[in-house]
Design a protein around this nucleic acid. Structure first.
Lengths: 172, 172
DNA sequence: GTCTATAGTCCGATAGAC
DNA sequence: GTCTATCGGACTATAGAC
């Protein structure tokens, strides 16, 4: 059912994300859907938690494949964020819109964000880690909203710069 | 009427942003509201354009008050973005949610973004300008969504760093 | 557990009087 | 131009059969 819900927001956007549509896409009745998720909010929360889990797993896998030296976690974060936009990202955008009015819904993700930076910046000077982190987040957000004012070449140049900054580790 | 619409999204959020509510807040009937804005989309578009105008004016005013040396436009942009969150920002957040599914609505803002960076980066090395720009945008976005993983001291440190980077101009 | 059917609410937009 | 009144539709959630 969560698969169907995610596929729906990816293809139709957040506006068409209704219980009827999700049930139809999942091949169950609305009653069946609401047996598993008592309210729509419960469904949204489950989708959000799955996104966070996916993201954490992707970052962990990427980190392991990098040499174990200072900044590798931050570097993996950058790499994981600048990939081509995929379905998970599109789900993020739709959910962002859906939950923008319900700050409580974002609480679990908020905690995830706070802990994530703490881990990323452990072996990198604070200011540089924060700069790379914020710039990466800005890049991801603007790209998602199709408001990134860079062409492909400029974007590649920026990504290279971010990775270099993350890689330089503690030698400042 | 636009004032009332903005006040409404600030106080009640995007979910309660209905034509009835806007009309009531503006002290007119729904018919009167829809005489001026034929559809809800027209109303949203007008609000967006006013936001862009406000933002451009604030940046211009801030720029003028800085000494005329390389990087002053970029510096003014950073300063204009890291102020305490105000009503305009809250409107931005609500509109972000409202228009996330309608990419066409964002077109005018998208053009504004593209031109804005071109101006900001005119007298600063590209990579540094892009880094400062993206990090500032990331800071603004995360703060708006209450997902900024920094305390007040760390935030001040980051802002200082961003301003310094913008200020160093072309001496790289 | 999963279904059908429907209750109850709210929205955007229209029609027509004044 | 601005009002009142209302339409048609879509939504979440519930009730109850099987």
């Amino acid at each position: 059912m969560l698969d169907a819900a995610q596929a729906l927001v990816v293809s139709d956007g957040a506006a068409r994300f209704t219980l009827d549509a999700v049930a139809k896409r999942a091949g169950v009745s609305k009653g069946g859907l609401m047996y598993n998720f008592p309210t729509k909010e419960a469904l949204l929360k489950a989708m959000l938690e799955r996104l966070v889990t996916h993201n954490a797993a992707a970052h962990a896998a990427l980190t392991e494949r990098l040499p174990d030296k200072p900044g590798r976690s931050l570097k993996a974060y950058v790499m994981n964020s600048v990939r081509a936009i995929d379905d998970d990202d599109r789900v993020s955008a739709a959910l962002l819109a859906a939950v923008a009015n319900d700050p409580g819904l974002l609480k679990p993700a908020s905690d995830y964000f706070a802990q994530r930076f703490a881990k990323l910046s452990r072996d990198v000077p604070f200011e540089r880690a924060a700069l790379v982190y914020l710039a990466t987040e800005g890049l991801w957000t603007l790209e998602l909203l199709k408001m990134l004012p860079f062409n492909a070449r400029q974007r590649a140049r920026i990504v290279r710069h971010l990775l270099k900054l993350a890689d330089e580790g503690t030698d400042e």
